[in-house]
């Protein structure tokens, strides 16, 4: 009995804390790891009193969570999957929110000679020709799906010892690339905020094929009546409003802008986008 009491005493002082008004946002690691949500969500919550609980996983898993009705809003970056999600009736009101780009990362000494190549598919071909190590996410994330699409462009089916599918997040892929001197495809935000770059460097960017747009989708309340559609719509509206878009554009990491707002082309926010982003 005394041990049970001891446990109760240890548990007691930690009070429960939870907001009554909140929505659940299923999103990607690329947006979370860059710190965008830490910057953006307090502004939204201060204005509306709505808390946003972010589950950041790969795009594939985020869509799965939303499909099961376990989230109210979805913010991901793989257009074909987003369209399928809408077509199957799980989501409504998809909007463009922002974009940035994918980049090819590799060892500084660049054994596959990527420097100078402008097309992403040519870069991958060079990696294949040199048979240097390439780390693939292998987790059905937006980045992984894009990587598969880029390989499909080259006509190469990537298999062999040099091609390693690790089934993990972007950070894990970068950690591995840093330790075994491999190439990998990353989104620019995760790369910039990554703290263990080692001998890695950004070797290829700027190709239109590396365009990385993010969309926001509400989970369909007709499918899941428990979805907090009003608050979710308030969030979606705010993200594409002038205020939300300006906040996205103002977010920087190490003085570099990470996301380019593109919900409303009329606002001409493109002028504040980094030149590195296509």
């Amino acid at each position: 009995m005394r041990f049970i009491l001891a446990f109760l005493i240890l548990i007691a002082p930690v009070s429960t804390y939870a907001e009554d008004r909140f929505i659940t946002l299923a999103s990607t690691t690329s947006t979370q790891n860059s710190g965008l949500y830490d910057y953006l969500l307090p502004i939204f919550t201060a204005k509306t009193g709505i808390g946003v609980r972010v589950i950041s996983v790969g795009t594939g898993q985020a869509i799965r969570i939303a499909q099961n009705g376990d989230a109210d809003v979805l913010l991901v970056h793989h257009r074909p999957s987003e369209d399928a999600f809408l077509a199957q009736g799980y989501g409504i009101e998809r909007r463009d929110v922002m974009y940035n780009d994918f980049v090819i990362i590799g060892p500084k000494d660049d054994p596959a000679k990527l420097a100078g190549i402008t097309r992403a598919s040519d870069g991958l071909k060079a990696i294949y020709d040199a048979q240097t190590l390439f780390i693939s996410r292998g987790d059905e994330s937006g980045t992984h799906k894009r990587e598969r699409a880029l390989w499909a462009d080259t006509g190469i089916v990537p298999t062999g010892d040099w091609y390693r599918e690790i089934g993990a997040g972007m950070g894990a892929a970068l950690n591995m690339a840093a330790s075994v001197e491999a190439y990998t495809l990353s989104d620019r935000g995760t790369w910039l905020s990554f703290g263990n770059k080692g001998d890695l460097a950004l070797l290829l960017s700027g190709d239109d094929a590396l365009f990385n747009p993010y969309g926001i989708i509400l989970v369909n309340p007709a499918k899941y009546p428990h979805v907090k559609i009003d608050m979710a719509r308030t969030f979606s509206d705010w993200m594409v409003s002038a205020e939300g878009q300006t906040a996205i554009g103002a977010f920087t990491l190490k003085k570099v802008q990470l996301f380019c707002p593109n919900a409303n082309p009329k606002l001409n926010l493109k002028t504040i986008c980094p030149t590195s982003v296509p």
Binding site: T29, R53, G195, N196
Partner: peptide, 23 residues
């Protein structure tokens, strides 16, 4: 779900910081 300020615990924070490269 490793939600900041709500379901984030020590181990999930460690996993998150590792994935950010903040070893």
């Amino acid at each position: 779900g490793n939600i900041a300020g709500f379901t984030r615990v020590m181990t999930t924070t460690i996993a998150l910081e590792t994935s950010k490269g903040n070893l």
